[in-house]
Design a protein around this nucleic acid. Structure first.
Length: 376
RNA sequence: GUGAUUGUAGCUCAGUUGGUUAGAGCGCCGGAUUGUGGUUCCGGAGGUCGUGGGUUCGACCCCCACCAUUCACC
């Protein structure tokens, strides 16, 4: 993997860069659609490539490990071969899922035991095992196994949790560096900064991560319910410490506004379920603001979903028709909404990159911020 | 025509031996959703209890008539 910064914005910490991988290059800043179980919900790969113009997608260790399972993935030759996506893939480690959706989990120094949400069966994830699993899935970028501290979180818990995440990180690196990729292309391990909403913990964690020889770095434990201002504060502190010459990934973020602010702070990579999950639920993000397509006010609005939108669905379908599809619970509704939202997110980061290169990123960003969260 | 049955929110229904402002699910109208369990959660509007009488301090509930429903039999 190689990261090149093409343009550094003189008026903010934003940068326009390029990440080269064995599955092609990625122009940054970038938004990565989430494809938890190896599929970006409601979308074909053709949609993702030609319409959304996704450059990289996510997969999830926890979900893929439970289903289809490692045997299937290994026999398939890895996730790229399995789902047909020939561009880069990043896999999340499952630390977040163990936190977010396992009612019964036990954290120990060794790792986490949890029960499957599918059949209740018990499993143990250790840093070593999570590295092995991600070797088998075969993502171009793989994530260290961490504990995502909840919010709110007592200082003492956050501190202990961070230290354990650091020890797990050392074990991840040890395992990663003594194993080889299984399918003939390079994999990059990203460590994750934790520390909850405490500045000194964030600094301490960022310094630990900055001292490592990893190819890129991630900021985790954000967007878990804390106020947006705190998220920005933590991100800014951490970005001041992480090395500038490596890509920075802000995990799980966020709204269009969050992404623009993140870019301004020096973040290069984002992922979030918001465009797809909220899209399936009827919420559309546009340049002018957000729309709830279930609202009655669209009932007879036969105008296009979005004039000058980023994908063909924007002019192919009207607001009234899309509302009707949501009312009728037609499968086409979440398909259109997901495609629209992802195309918009990719448009947003691509546009941001162009403005960084052009030198007017900050003024463009400030103009966009006023529009993005307007309720239409 | 005769006998029986049922009539409560847009729909399907609950409603204790008669006791305050009649409830639920779904639907509808809004809102939430940030490293995805094809979700989930939170609000809101909406009823002259078929109609008209009667009994009673008090009726969705008991009595009478009528209307409508469904079924069976002529």
């Amino acid at each position: 993997m190689q990261f090149t910064i093409n343009t550094a914005d003189p008026y903010s910490n934003a940068r326009a860069g390029e990440i080269q991988t064995d599955h092609g290059s990625i122009l940054t800043p970038i938004f990565m659609p989430v494809g938890t179980v190896g599929s970006v919900k409601a979308l074909h790969l053709r949609d993702l490539k030609d319409d959304v113009k996704a450059q990289i997608i996510l997969g999830n260790t926890y979900h893929l490990y439970l289903r289809p399972g490692l045997d299937v993935l290994f026999q398939a030759g890895g996730l790229h071969k399995f789902n047909g996506w020939d561009r880069p893939i990043l896999t999340d480690s499952g630390g977040f899922q163990v936190y977010s959706l396992s009612g019964t989990r036990k954290m120990k120094e060794e790792g986490v035991t949890f029960s499957s949400h599918i059949d209740g069966s018990k499993h143990l994830f250790t840093p070593e095992k999570v590295m092995d699993i991600q070797r088998i899935i075969g993502g171009d970028f793989i994530m260290a196994f961490d504990e995502c501290a909840p919010y709110p979180c007592e200082y003492e818990y956050a501190h202990k949790s961070m230290l354990m995440t650091h020890r797990w990180l050392d074990r991840c690196i040890e395992r990663f560096s003594t194993t080889e990729p299984l399918y003939g292309y390079h994999q990059s391990l990203f460590p994750i900064v934790q520390g909850s909403v405490y500045k000194d913990l964030r600094r301490q964690s960022a310094e630990k991560i900055a001292s490592l020889a990893c190819e890129g770095n991630a900021i985790g434990g954000v967007s878990v319910g804390e106020p947006t201002d705190l998220m920005y504060e933590m991100t800014e502190i951490v970005c001041g410490i992480l090395p500038k010459d490596k890509p920075r990934y802000l995990m799980g973020v966020g709204t269009p506004a969050n992404i623009l602010e993140g870019i301004a702070m020096g973040i290069d990579m984002f992922d979030c379920v918001m465009p797809t999950r909220n899209g399936r639920n009827g919420m559309l993000f546009t340049k002018e603001g957000i729309m709830n397509m279930k609202n009655e006010k669209w009932k007879t609005d036969f105008s296009p979903i979005e004039l000058n939108g980023a994908s063909f669905v924007d002019v192919q379908y009207s607001k009234a028709y899309l509302r009707h599809l949501f009312q009728s619970k037609e499968i086409l509704a979440p398909m259109i909404a997901s495609l629209h939202n992802l195309a918009f997110y990719l448009w947003l980061v691509t546009e941001a990159r162009q403005h960084i290169v052009a030198g007017d990123f900050v003024s463009w960003k400030n103009k966009m911020l006023k529009q993005l969260m307007t309720r239409l």
